[in-house]
Each structure stands twice: as C-alpha cells, then as structure tokens.
Nucleic acid binder design. Structure first.
Lengths: 136, 136
DNA sequence: ACAGGCTTCATACTAAAGTACCAAATATCT
DNA sequence: AGATATTTGGTACTTTAGTATGAAGCCTGT
C-alpha cells in the first residue's frame, strides 16, 4: 500500500516536472518537440514495466500461497496438517513419528484420517490433491 | 519473434503518428501541450505494461520448465520417466501398470531403478527430489 | 553378428502403508 | 462443569511398496 502511494506520488511529480520542462523548452526554443515526446515515452514505458513487474510479482506469490481457508473447509486439524507436510517431504511414517516425538500408530491414524478428508487412496495421491487445492 | 517485430513496428508507427499529430496541433493551436504529453504518457505506459507482461510470462514458464538435461544426467530412461510422472500423479503400481499396458512386476522394476537413480528411499521422496531437480 | 543398454516379466521375499476398531488423556468452547 | 473435538496410542489385519535375482526379447551402434 505504502509503495503504491509512493509510486503514484512520483508519477504525479514527474508528470508536473515534465510539463514545466517542456513548456520552458518550447518557449526558449532550445529543445525540439520530438525530444520531449521521446523522453516522455521512454520514462512512462519504464514506469509501466516497473509497476507491472511489481504487481505481477505480488499476484504470483498470492497464487502460490497456502489456502488456509480450504484447510478449514476440509476439516484438516493442525496436527494432521503437520503430518501432511511431512508426507509431502517424502518422509515415512516412522520418520514422521520420530520428528514429532509420537508413535508410529499415531501417525498412521493421522494419515488414515487425512486420506479420508482429502479423498485420496494413497499418500502420493494426497500430495497431489493437496497441491491442487493449494493446501501445500 | 513475429510478435516482437509486430510490437516494435506498431511502436514506431504510433511514435511517428504522435509526431505528426502533435506538430499539427501546435501549429493550429487547438490542442494544449499538456494533453499531448498525457496521451503519450498513457500510451507508452500501456505499452510498457503489455511488453513486460509478455516477457515475464515467458521467463516464468522457462523457470518452471522441465530440465531435460538433468534427466539425461541422472540416466533416467524414457520409460522410467513415464513411471515417475505417473507416481507424481498419485497412482499405485497397479494403476500405472494398467495405464501403460504393462505388468505390475515391470512397474516395480522401473520404480526400484528410479529410486536408486534419484537416491530416494520411497516414492514420495522421489517426487520431492525430482521436483527439486526440476525434473517434474 | 554381437555387445550392451532398455524393456519386459516372474518369483519370493521383507518392509512399509493403510484399515478397522477401540480406548483414554487433553483441549476447547459454551 | 459438561459436551465436543483433538490428540495420542494400541492390536490385528490386509494391501501396497520395495528388494533381490534371474531371464528373455528388442533395439542400437560397431
């Protein structure tokens, strides 16, 4: 938000400056109209590229962000989500159990519940489905 | 390539048109210099946004493209790669076998070889490693 | 023609993954 | 405090995954 305001302020200031410069130049007869037009064109071309890059960058990150709303909708609990993340990293149930200081039985329970909630038959499918829903 | 040429051609034409219009307008005294500047600014701003969007789109796709070179380096054969893709979609060995009209034994062999080549212990880990190497 | 890699498949096995069902401790919310 | 959801864990079982080994047919380059 702050950046947007800054950019637009700079835009207005540069526009105003261009007015003054171009007018003085014309009155003094030193600069040709072609030069002014080219200058303006180049400046605003660069501004266009810059703003677009920024906005695209943001929207790209948003699209790759995790959909927390969807996690709630699917009724995936926080512990289950931790297990899901571990699965996507390629860990086995035993490894996940060690990582979270739990028994393998517990992990199996979580995984089983996850598969039902994600409507998956296997953990590999769960990864795919979770990524489709932008949960991972 | 063709599009780039088209865009630059349009750029030159529009620039030339602006020259003519601005000159006539000034001579005739009908249009203010401010209006011309704003027009040019807007047009080139839009052009900047457009070109940037195009180029970013291409570069983004390139960065997310599959690293075919890496596949060769890891000595993954074409059949093995097909199996790898199927694994990442969450299919079981049986399902992969049906999809490729092969026996489950064959798929198991391919998977086993894949795990060695990818230095993975499980198929889920293979997916993760493959994505890290931009093979998937 | 022959070596070498690729693909295919089988058997026999071990290891993980996943299901079903139950039970208890812990939070959480009203 | 009591209902509810979460988290944890167990047993017993079935299914899938993965390993090891061997073998045969098929291309490809020499």
């Amino acid at each position: 938000m702050k950046k947007t305001i800054l950019v637009f302020t700079l835009l207005i200031v540069s526009l105003y400056t261009l007015f003054r410069v171009s007018k003085y130049s014309l009155i003094l007869g030193e600069t040709s109209i072609e030069f002014i037009i080219i200058t303006i064109a180049v400046i605003f071309f660069i501004i266009g590229v810059y703003i677009n890059k920024k906005s695209l960058h943001k929207s790209r990150n948003i699209s790759e962000e995790i959909n927390h709303q969807k996690i709630k909708e699917m009724e995936i609990t926080s512990r289950e989500y931790e297990v899901l993340q571990a699965i996507s990293k390629g860990l086995s149930n035993k490894e996940i159990a060690e990582k979270l200081f739990l028994s393998e039985s517990t992990i199996k329970t979580h995984v089983s519940n996850l598969l039902v909630k994600l409507n998956a038959k296997r953990r590999t499918q769960a990864i795919q489905i979770a990524k489709d829903h932008k949960i991972l």
